[in-house]
């Protein structure tokens, strides 16, 4: 059973239809990268998976639970489906440790000590064990994003959604974040990543999905999509950005 099962997903804002029937499955342990031009609906699709956006049609199943059901327990769902944001969205008034520990305490109702040690472990996993007491303003962009990843990881979700995690970073800081993501993959985390980092998608993804105009145009292994794209739209997109593969 796939961890994430998206079927016929539709989303409209008033008269504008952004998602026009998206079908996508993510199996356990897979790293799936979604690429495509801006405006293709990639981020919107991601936000529908944890109900930060409400779909207007179609179904989504996460870990066997129907996300699109009116009876869904949103806060339980979000413990199983984690998210990492393009703009990091760290809480500026809390230290790195508290950023990670907040949900552990308030949502999972753990004791202060338990939450702190779990948070510390998550920060060490992303290589920031020594920065637990630092505040976001004291951290570089790459470090902030890694704290964002720790914040999602600490809740031990079934799948993590990444919304262009490196787009807001200076080039030299991107690699640190990608390394953390590669490490997560080797630990078996299921990941759905919207990204412009073609080289990363080519090297690390199990599957690549190309979206355009609110639908999935084609998907396959990185070799299939990058080297032998079937669709014309995929080809013209890659022609513009293919140089990023090297």
């Amino acid at each position: 059973m796939p961890i994430l099962d998206i079927s016929g997903l539709r989303k409209s804002y008033g008269a504008t239809e952004v998602l026009r029937g998206v079908d996508l499955q993510v199996r356990a342990g897979e790293l799936v990268c979604v690429i495509g031009p801006s405006g293709s609906g990639k981020s919107t699709m991601l936000c529908c998976c944890n109900l930060l956006e409400t779909p207007t049609g179609g179904t989504i199943f996460a870990n066997g639970h129907e996300v699109t059901s009116p009876l869904v327990n949103i806060n339980r769902l979000r413990q199983e489906v984690g998210m990492v944001f393009q703009q990091f969205n760290l809480y500026p008034h809390l230290s790195a440790l508290d950023n990670v520990a907040l949900a552990l305490r308030q949502v999972q109702r753990r004791s202060r000590d338990e939450a702190a040690s779990l948070a510390r472990a998550a920060l060490e996993q992303v290589g920031l064990g020594g920065k637990a007491g630092s505040y976001p303003s004291e951290l570089s962009g790459g470090q902030q994003q890694r704290v964002g990843i720790a914040r999602a990881v600490a809740l031990k979700p079934q799948v993590i959604l990444f919304d262009e995690p490196t787009s807001a970073l200076d080039p030299e800081l991107v690699e640190d974040v990608l390394n953390v993501m590669r490490d997560l993959r080797t630990r078996g985390m299921t990941m759905l990543v919207v990204t412009h980092e073609m080289a990363f998608a080519h090297a690390a993804a199990d599957r690549v999905v190309f979206m355009d105009g609110g639908v999935v145009v084609e998907q396959g292994t990185p070799a299939e999509v990058f080297e032998n794209p079937r669709e014309a739209r995929t080809r013209s997109f890659l022609a513009r950005y293919g140089s990023r593969l090297s």
Partner: peptide, 20 residues
């Protein structure tokens, strides 16, 4: 984005308001 991030970790609206 602050409310979004807080909610994405499962915090309820009230908790997100109170802590974030």
């Amino acid at each position: 984005g602050q409310m979004e991030a807080a909610r994405s970790t499962g915090l309820t609206r009230a908790q997100a308001l109170r802590h974030v």
